[in-house]
């Protein structure tokens, strides 16, 4: 039932899962309770890595987009789309965990601080990218259009972030990460680093799996049209 490729993917996936479980153990048992927020701060170990992954996905999307413009390759379209999907997933995760964290600490489910606002806009952009992909016929035209959008999104996110920061800095509730990290105790810091590492690996693997799925689907579709003529 499983061929060797599937078995390899399954193995990689299982290894990554154990990494995740290990990280959750770190987050719950190794990292101490925070003096001000109590145990609820632990959601940071989900929130911050998701945020970093969500934004790293935009970088990956840009790289794939630039490559697909230069190489005119249809395969890169599949990878780009997979990256956008994974990016959307982690952006939503960031927003959800951020909201849940905000409720007990700031007293509100939502606030227009720079990071949340930018993440929200990034979610809209990923969704728009996927909408654009879905509403065009397959082909080099679509690849080019999506590539340009991918570059545009990556170029714009820092500008959005900076402008919202300047708009809201003085209204901002307590930051999630202190600038220097110097008041973060080592156990907390290391758990966070581990989390970033694990989640990035996981996201990369998701992109890989998804990209291969899309390529397979494209192959099947072209094969079915090809057999029509005979």
């Amino acid at each position: 039932m499983f061929n060797s490729e599937d078995k390899r993917e399954f193995l990689i996936g299982s290894v990554l899962q154990t990494f995740i479980i290990f990280h959750w153990c770190l987050a719950f048992f190794y990292a101490p309770v925070d003096i001000h927020q109590g145990p609820v701060y632990r959601i940071m170990f989900l929130h911050v890595p998701s945020a970093i992954t969500a934004f790293a996905s935009s970088l990956a999307l840009c790289v794939f987009s630039v490559l697909s413009l230069r190489n005119r390759s249809e395969r890169l379209m599949a990878w780009s789309k997979g990256t956008a999907e994974v990016g959307l997933l982690f952006t939503i995760l960031t927003l959800a965990t951020g909201s849940i964290w905000g409720r007990p600490t700031w007293g509100t489910w939502w606030t227009w601080d720079a990071r949340l606002t930018t993440t929200f806009l990034l979610a809209l952009l990923y969704a728009g990218y996927l909408l654009l992909y879905g509403s065009m016929a397959p082909g080099p035209g679509r690849t080019r259009v999506c590539a340009v959008l991918g570059i545009l999104i990556f170029a714009d996110v820092p500008i959005i972030y900076k402008s919202v920061t300047w708009w809201r800095t003085l209204h901002q509730p307590p930051s999630m990460i202190r600038q220097g990290g110097s008041t973060m105790d080592p156990e907390i810091l290391w758990t966070l680093v581990a989390g970033i590492f694990v989640m990035s690996l996981y996201a990369a693997w998701l992109v890989r799996v998804r990209g291969r799925n899309i390529l397979l689907a494209d192959e099947i579709e072209s094969a079915s049209y090809a057999s029509f003529g005979t």
């Binding site: 806009l121 990034l122 809209l124 952009l125 969704a127 728009g128 909408l131 654009l132 509403s135 959008l149 545009l152 999104i153 714009d156 500008i159 959005i160 900076k162 402008s163 919202v164």
Partner: peptide
């Protein structure tokens, strides 16, 4: 109709 605004407003936020 839906695609244009969903891309336009986030990108032009600054």
């Amino acid at each position: 109709q839906i695609l244009y605004p969903i891309l336009y407003f986030p990108l032009t936020t600054p």
